[in-house]
Computed example of a mutant assay.
Amino acid sequence: MASAVQRILVKVIFYISIAIWGCRGILMMLSTIIKFSKVLFVKKNRSQLPSCATDPSLGTHDSLTLNFRGETSACSVRSLKIKYVANGKSGLPLMLCIHGFPECWYSWRHQLKEFSSKYRVVAIDLPGYGDSDKPADKDFYSVTSLVDTIAQIIIELGYESATIVSHDWGGALAWNFAVNHADKCEQVIVMNAPNAVGFQKGFTFKQYCMSWYMFFFQLPWLPEFMMSCCDFQFMNDCFRGAWGVTDKSRLTDEDVEVYKYSLSSWEARNSAINYYRRNNMLSRDHFRGKKFKLECPVLLIWGTEDQALSLELAAKSANASDLITLEYVEGASHWVQQDNPEEVNRLMWEFLNSSSSYGRLDVEPSFGALSPDYGLSPEGPEPDLSPEIEL
């Protein structure tokens, strides 16, 4: 009886939140329309990748096709093309880079160059983004389905396991991948994305307000329209506005054009928003009933000026397991690997050298200084958060 009442209460809160924050999203959209009314329906032709994304030093553009068997696929998708960019010699250990919202493979441009001497670095367009296929079936975007897709990508690339590097939505998938496919993880690096334990323990009222967009995205078609109106002003605001990088020289207008290209079609925007619609607070398949138990080391990198995810989420996430190392990047925004790539790369090398099953990679990091802990670095697991936590 108590659990039934709790489920009803969660649903009521969920739908009331959609109504409240949906109104905020609509007001923000109207404000943008008024401010940029002259270009309301203007859309630049984005049929070709901007030249900065075709730089050969980033790697080779390619794609692979996954075929799903009926008994293992929970939705109607039977085949899926995944676009990727790869740098580094075939046969080197695989580093698989998974981006977040509203990005694409290009968010890993600095890491594609930096780590190609010791890794086969592969940065994918997640399903629904860029030149990857865009399944219309919303069930395909469940965490369970997406995590299984990542496992198949590794196999299709000719590997049994990989070092997973991730950010934002890619990070959410990486945490789940580490739990459900531990045999395919060498190491995991997550940037500005909490695990399920951290999100649950750190979801304060402040974070609830910061997460307003997650509720707005539950509305039909309006989020897709908002993203594209006034020639994708939403993307300008995300990357170079109040939510954007703190150092604007790190993410230029031309860089933003790559992300606009990635989500230029209605199908792409619908797919990107479906990640939120399919995996909301009413979903129960995030960990498939498993305990949160890590078997490989995880580095959690967190930009301290994130406007969407609080510092408390980082600390609570790190406390979920003794295998998690938390490092803050002072002054960096949510787009941490683009805002301060030198520091991020230094932290990555340090972690990879200390925890690699391949042995030391003989690369000495030479960037920057360690960031302060802001008083939130974990001082050991909290009493109520053991390494195994039933969700």
Rank of each mutant, 00 (worst) to 15 (best):
K11E: 09
I18K: 12
W21I: 05
C23K: 11
R24Y: 15
F36I: 10
F41I: 09
F41E: 14
K43T: 07
R46Y: 07
R46H: 12
D55P: 11
P56C: 12
P56E: 15
T60Y: 15
H61C: 08
T72C: 08
I82E: 00
I82P: 09
Y84H: 12
K89H: 13
L94H: 11
C97M: 06
C97W: 07
H99Q: 14
F101K: 04
P102K: 06
Y106E: 01
S117Q: 02
Y129V: 02
D133R: 01
P135I: 01
S145P: 09
T149Q: 14
I150R: 11
I153D: 03
I153N: 00
I154T: 00
I155Y: 03
E156G: 06
G158I: 08
S161E: 15
D168R: 00
G170C: 15
L173D: 02
N176M: 02
V179K: 04
V179H: 01
C185E: 10
I189K: 02
V190M: 02
V190L: 00
A196Y: 13
V197H: 04
G198F: 00
Q200I: 00
G202R: 14
F203D: 00
T204V: 01
K206N: 02
S211E: 12
P223A: 00
M226R: 06
F232W: 13
Q233F: 10
F234H: 15
F239T: 01
R240A: 00
G244C: 02
D247Y: 06
D247F: 06
D253I: 05
V256H: 05
Y261R: 11
S264E: 10
R269V: 01
S271G: 06
Y276N: 09
R277Y: 08
R284S: 13
G289K: 10
K290P: 14
L294P: 14
L299Y: 04
L300W: 03
Q307E: 04
A308I: 03
S317W: 05
A318G: 10
L326R: 01
L326N: 02
L326M: 08
G331W: 10
S333E: 07
S333R: 11
W335P: 15
Q337R: 08
E342G: 07
R346P: 13
S354F: 04
S354W: 08
L361F: 07
P365V: 03
G368T: 11
G368S: 12
P372N: 05
Y374F: 15
P381A: 11
P381Y: 03
P381Q: 12
S386W: 14
S386H: 09
P387C: 06
L391E: 09
L391G: 05
